[in-house]
């Protein structure tokens, strides 16, 4: 495991040469700042709301890697005061699906900081997020000596077909995709990295009913008090050293955990799936996007009469999709 971790770190150091700094505001990062790291491509339409959302939660600085966007993502980000952005023109796949880039940025800038590594369609929810900023959470985790915080990805979907209501820039995507699956998730433990492997939700139900083992993993460890010796190994599903993956209690109790609301299944997805499929840059031979493109051709409706409409974090906590744990 140590070797694997070292290899990861070597890789990310090698890949740093692919990163071209476009706007570097990292000098402004204060010692206590909470950072957000994200690898993006052609996400201009999502970014305004994304930045607004995380600024409101109290993220102090954003670090983006732009993977060769051809919309004005790069230009937009370069003009934000609390954003540093790098351009990577090389292959996403060969950079470990972007992982090498984010590992590098984490190692370089996030040592000693709480860092949130998310995709631009993932929105972090944690207990009391409507009344307490992220810093309240990280201060509390510091006090408890906890270094990593577990979350689950919850796929949100609209009432009708995915393309029924177009998404406009700056809008809260969950006004459109406000529904989710409340209780069809399947969990196993991955003995290799000791992380949980969670599958299920609407994507397993609609895209992978014949082959559930291929359904995407929903377990995410996005919020970590970073140390330069750490490395993500498989997206943000697991990291090394393995102790960081122990975000769950094994003796019956509940640790504090959060959720990532996933605004993927909205109008943008169709174009995205076609585009990503053509590039073939995604995990597992882009299987996921292949399935999306296929099924989206039939215009699926994820919604059914048992779907749950999202209200707030307390609802998720009652449904057992996250937990306050010991935080009250």
């Amino acid at each position: 495991m140590r070797l694997r971790r070292k290899r990861r770190l070597m890789r990310c150091l090698r890949k740093r040469r692919e990163l071209l700094s476009i706007a570097d505001n990292t000098a402004n990062i204060q010692r206590q700042d909470i950072l957000l790291i994200s690898v993006i491509r052609n996400e201009k339409i999502r970014l305004p709301y994304f930045l607004e959302y995380y600024r409101r939660l109290g993220v102090n600085h954003f670090l983006f890697v732009d993977n060769d966007s051809d919309d004005d993502t790069l230009d937009y980000l370069a003009h934000q005061p609390d954003v540093s952005v790098w351009l990577a023109k090389t292959s996403y796949k060969r950079a470990g699906f972007g992982l090498d880039w984010s590992n590098y940025l984490l190692r370089k800038y996030a040592h000693g900081h709480w860092a949130l590594t998310v995709d631009p369609d993932e929105f972090f929810i944690y207990p009391f997020c409507d009344t307490r900023p992220i810093r309240a959470l990280t201060d509390w985790l510091n006090g408890c000596g906890v270094r990593s915080f577990g979350t689950m990805l919850i796929d949100m979907y609209p009432r009708g077909t995915v393309d029924a209501e177009p998404y406009d820039e700056g809008r809260d995507p969950f006004e459109i995709a406000s529904w989710f699956d409340a209780g069809n998730y399947m969990i196993t433990k991955n003995p290799e990295y000791r992380n949980l492997w969670i599958q299920g939700g609407p994507r397993a139900r609609v895209f992978f009913p014949e082959n559930p083992s291929r359904a995407p993993a929903l377990n995410k460890i996005s919020l970590v008090k970073w140390d330069r010796r750490y490395a993500y190994v498989s997206s943000t599903h697991s990291l090394l050293p393995r102790g960081l993956n122990q975000v769950y209690d094994e003796w019956g109790g509940e640790k504090t955990s959060g959720a990532l609301l996933h605004a993927k299944l909205i109008d943008i997805l169709g174009d995205k799936a076609q585009e990503e499929l053509a590039r073939g840059q995604h995990y597992g031979k882009s299987n996921e996007y292949r399935a999306y493109a296929e099924k989206l051709g039939h215009n699926p409706v994820f919604w059914c009469d048992q779907s749950e409409k999202y209200i707030n974090w307390r609802q998720l906590e009652i449904l057992g999709l996250m937990s306050k744990g010991n935080w009250a």
Partner: peptide
């Protein structure tokens, strides 16, 4: 409210499996 928090952290909700509660066999 605080004793509830302690109970949730130590015993948890029976029959719930989630990202932060995955008891070992027997617990």
């Amino acid at each position: 409210i605080f004793s509830k928090a302690v109970e949730r952290r130590t015993r948890g909700r029976d029959g719930l499996y989630m990202q932060s509660r995955f008891p070992r066999h027997g617990s």
